[in-house]
């Protein structure tokens, strides 16, 4: 059995300290009684209380949540389709362009994506607001979703799908009864990833939005520019807490599901060797 060497243990410990200490400090100072971030004035939850009275932030949070749910669902459907097209459709005219289009948003600077989206909406004369943000988020999230599902599709034995068709299932039935159940864990992770991407996004939403659809990151950003306030720490802590719980629960349940599947697939693969 392998053990941690002192060098590896130290580098991991330092690395994780670097990753987590800033977040930890932010959380701790959200419970600070004092308004001055650097002066510890004792424990208090009063900033959480004042959040509840801040209608602007509450509205923004509600808009953000709705955008995230709708856009991530759209992104997961489109991304799964895109992954199936990339992995299962073989060569077709324009495939290179298509895989480029899936790939580019992953690394494209957000300012460019945001600006180009906005100019499209203006050119189409669309009223900017909730739906334009949803479209913008769905578009760049679908590429992340496609990558996640694609990895899973590459993994699994194509002959399982062929077997279903050989036994008389039409392509649509094969997808619903065989492919989808097998790739389900990756589709769920794709949704979660799209959801958090939408929840986090500041830049693209700033470009794509219009009056009446201010998202939480936009609200936070405009307040941060005015200075550090414990209220921001409090809302950040709530977001971190929710996302952490969500991710932990999801990863625990999908891990169990995918472990089971992994074992199943491994057994089938081992049978093939």
């Amino acid at each position: 059995m392998r053990r941690f060497s002192w060098f590896n243990a130290t580098s991991i410990a330092l690395g994780f300290a670097f990753l987590y200490i800033p977040i930890l400090l932010l959380v701790i100072y959200s419970f600070n009684e004092s308004k001055l971030v650097t002066v510890w004035g004792g424990w208090s939850t009063k900033w959480y209380g004042s959040l509840l009275e801040n209608e602007g932030i509450l509205n923004a949070a509600w808009v953000t949540l709705r955008v995230a749910i709708v856009s991530s669902t759209l992104a997961t459907i489109l991304g799964t389709l895109a992954a199936v097209v990339l992995v299962r459709m073989g060569r077709f005219r324009g495939r290179t362009l298509f895989s480029g289009l899936i790939f580019a948003p992953l690394v494209m600077p957000e300012v460019i994506t945001g600006l180009s989206m906005l100019l499209l909406f203006v050119a189409l004369n669309m009223d900017r607001g909730f739906w334009t943000v949803v479209i913008a988020h769905a578009t760049f999230s679908m590429c992340f979703a496609a990558v996640v599902v694609q990895a899973r599709l590459y993994d699994f034995d194509k002959s399982v799908e062929e077997a279903a068709m050989d036994l008389g299932a039409t392509p649509v039935k094969t997808f619903m009864e065989v492919t989808l159940p097998i790739i389900a864990p990756s589709v769920i992770s794709a949704w979660l990833l799209s959801f958090t991407l939408s929840l986090d996004d500041l830049v693209i939403a700033s470009f794509a939005t219009g009056p009446g659809a201010t998202t939480l990151p936009m609200k936070i950003y405009s307040q941060v520019r005015l200075g550090v306030t414990p209220e921001i720490n409090a809302i950040s802590t709530i977001m971190i807490g929710l996302v952490t719980i969500g991710v932990l629960v999801a990863s625990y349940s999908t891990k169990r599901a995918s472990q089971r599947q992994e074992r199943e697939l491994k057994a089938v693969d081992a049978g093939a060797k």
Partner: peptide, 20 residues
């Protein structure tokens, strides 16, 4: 004819059993 319209069935090299 498509695979699902043919009167033949195949046993696959990898067995291709449905894991679920």
């Amino acid at each position: 004819l498509a695979p699902y319209e043919r009167p033949v069935n195949m046993m696959f090299q990898s067995y291709a059993l449905f894991p679920h």
